[in-house]
C-alpha cells in the first residue's frame, strides 16, 4: 500500500527506530572526527528526518516538494554542522534551517510564477482538495484548508504548537520571536481557523 493510514501521534523525544540512539553531544563529537563523520551524520538524519519532513510537508503540502526540501535541509546541516555553536539545541537549529527552507521555497514559488500570495494559497488548497490521503475525511480536509488560509508565519506557529506540540520557548528559539508574541499569534490563529470553519 502506498499510503498506510496512521493515527496522529507526535514524534517521541527519542525515536525508537534507532537501535542505540546517540545524544546530540555524542553525535557532534563523532561528526567532528573524520573516521566517524559519515556514520554520525547518518544517525543524525535518522534521528531527525521525520520531524523535519513533517514540519516541511505541512507547509508545502506536496510530498515531492517536501522530500526535496528535507534532503536540502540535511545537506545544509552537513555543510554547516562544523560551525554549529552548542549554546543552542541541535534540534532547534535544524528546525530553524527547515523553517527557512520552507519560507524560501514558498517565496521563490511566488517569484518564479509572478504569483500573488493568494494564488500560492489556492494552489496549495487544490493539492489538499485532490489529495488521496484526505479523500473521504471532509472534516480534516476543511481543517487543512482553513490552516492554509493563515498567513505563512502564523501557519508555521500554528503547526509547531498544534501538531508538533513544541514549547513556546523552543519556538521562540527557532523563530527568533518573543514567547508573548508567539502565544498571541497562536491564539489568533486558532480563532481564525474556528471562524473559517464556521463560514464553510
Amino acid at each position: 500500500m502506498l499510503f498506510p493510514q496512521a493515527e496522529y501521534t507526535p514524534e517521541p523525544a527519542t525515536p525508537d527506530y534507532l537501535d542505540v540512539p546517540l545524544e546530540d553531544k555524542e553525535l557532534l563529537e563523532k561528526f567532528a572526527r573524520p573516521e566517524s563523520r559519515n556514520m554520525a551524520f547518518n544517525q543524525l538524519v535518522r534521528k531527525y528526518q521525520e520531524k523535519v519532513y513533517w514540519h516541511i510537508r505541512k507547509m508545502v503540502i506536496d510530498h515531492d516538494d517536501a522530500d526535496d526540501l528535507t534532503q536540502e535541509v540535511f545537506v545544509k546541516v552537513w555543510k554547516n554542522l562544523d560551525n554549529f555553536r552548542q549554546d543552542a539545541q541541535l534540534y532547534t537549529w535544524i528546525y530553524r534551517i527547515a523553517t527557512n527552507e520552507c519560507l524560501s521555497f514558498l517565496s521563490s514559488k511566488k517569484r518564479k510564477f509572478f504569483l500573488p500570495l493568494n494564488d500560492v494559497t489556492a494552489e496549495l488548497m487544490e493539492k489538499v482538495e485532490s489529495s488521496p490521503e484526505l479523500a473521504g475525511d471532509e472534516v480534516q480536509k476543511k481543517l487543512q484548508k482553513a490552516i492554509l488560509r493563515l498567513p505563512e508565519k502564523q501557519r508555521l506557529v500554528f503547526n509547531m504548537k498544534y501538531f508538533d506540540e513544541l514549547k513556546y520557548e523552543e519556538m521562540s528559539e527557532i523563530l527568533g520571536t518573543s514567547v508573548g508574541a508567539l502565544k498571541a499569534s497562536y491564539h489568533i490563529a486558532v480563532k481564525k481557523i474556528e471562524e473559517f470553519l464556521k463560514q464553510d
Binding site: M1, P4, Q5, E7, V45, F74, W78, Q140
Partner: peptide
Amino acid sequence: KRNPYQVPEGYFDRLPMQVMERT
C-alpha cells in the same frame, strides 16, 4: 488531532541514503 498526510512505504528507510548521496 491527527496528521492527515502520509508518505510512500519505506520512505524514511531510504531517505538517509538519499541524503548521503546528495551530500
